[in-house]
């Protein structure tokens, strides 16, 4: 019966099972070790319930709603990044354009204009922002401003908009895959990998990978996380056109990309001297703390698909 469900709802069911399982596990741990402190774990899982509900709501109803949702995701991530920058008074008008480029980029994505959505930020905004900065007639700190703003646009607007671009991909022949199911595959694999790397790292972690950047990332967590995630990806292969071998390969690619996304954003936080990007999601930090891996994994996945399957 489950096989007759639409793949999006099948996936919803799987996520529901995973969430119920985690909540039951925490309840069980509370029962077995009443003196232990599980409040952070419990608030994290609670946040996962809410995020999963919001995410499914945003992608299941209509593509217009999905577009607004991902646009808002980019906007919020960009806000968190820009707030931590040391901006100059002379950057004000350029910053207005930086934020305006969010709806513009998502408009291109929404109209399915692939060429424009792929060059708007890397080409046109890249050329335009320094012009706006020059017009403000302040040269001290010019290069820093131009580079930091463009970097933020690339990571949080261009990069994250690939999530919405996935939704514009048509159905693939001889499989139940389409843009929406592929998006679900990506998000599930990347978020699962974040969680499993965390779990493996907490339980077995000994050898740090990047101690100066992200002291919580260990080889044990990394390897355990990407291997178990890639195996778990086999369970949701019905969302993709991949063979079993390709599924594992793609999952490895995504988890490694996601790992580096997280590491890059950790380095950004270190540089700014903060622990989290914000306080939007209890137990997780800001929006950026949750989507950091996707900033890397989403473009990689999208262009992999476009090259090999479309």
């Amino acid at each position: 019966m489950i096989n007759q469900l639409n793949p999006v709802w099948q996936m919803g069911l799987i996520v529901l099972v995973v969430l119920v399982f985690s909540s039951v596990m925490v309840a069980l741990m509370r029962f077995l070790r009443p003196q232990g402190n599980f409040s952070e774990l419990s608030s994290r899982i609670k946040a996962w319930w809410i995020m999963a509900a919001v995410f499914f709501g945003a992608i299941a109803v209509s593509s217009r709603i999905s577009l607004v949702f991902f646009g808002f995701l980019s906007f919020w991530a960009l806000k968190e990044y820009i707030t931590l920058l040391k901006t100059r008074a002379a950057d004000h008008r350029a910053l207005v354009w930086v934020f305006l480029s969010v709806p513009i980029q998502y408009y291109w994505v929404g109209t399915n204009w692939y060429g424009m959505s792929i060059i708007f930020i890397p080409v046109y905004m890249f050329l335009f922002l320094p012009i706006r900065l020059v017009l403000a007639r302040e040269t001290a700190g010019f290069v820093a401003s131009a580079s930091q703003l463009q970097w933020g646009l690339m990571a949080f607007v261009f990069g994250l908009s690939h999530l919405a671009m996935l939704l514009t991909l048509p159905a693939i022949d001889n499989s139940s895959a389409n843009g929406r199911t592929l998006l679900l595959f990506l998000v599930f694999v990347v978020e699962m990998s974040d969680v499993l790397q965390f779990v493996w790292g907490k339980t077995l972690g000994r050898h740090k990978i990047l101690p100066t950047v992200s002291p919580n990332k260990t080889w044990e967590g990394f390897l355990g996380g990407i291997i178990t995630t890639s195996l778990a990806a086999l369970l949701i292969r019905f969302l993709t056109p991949f063979t079993p071998l390709e599924t594992v390969g793609v999952a490895l690619l995504l988890t490694v990309a996601g790992f580096f996304g997280g590491a890059v954003m950790s380095a950004v936080k270190r540089d700014f001297g903060v622990k989290d990007f914000g306080g939007l999601i209890p137990g997780h930090g800001g929006m950026l703390d949750r989507v950091d891996s996707l900033c890397y994994a989403a473009p990689v996945f999208f262009h992999y698909l476009r090259y090999f399957h479309y």
Binding site: F75, K79, E80, I82, T83, T87, A89, H92, R93, L95, V96, F99, G278
Partner: peptide
């Protein structure tokens, strides 16, 4: 905090700093 970054004197369009 940050109000003057979002909408400084002399500007009319706010930038959404937190």
């Amino acid at each position: 905090v940050n109000m003057g970054r979002s909408l400084p004197k002399g500007e009319w369009i706010p930038v959404p700093f937190f």
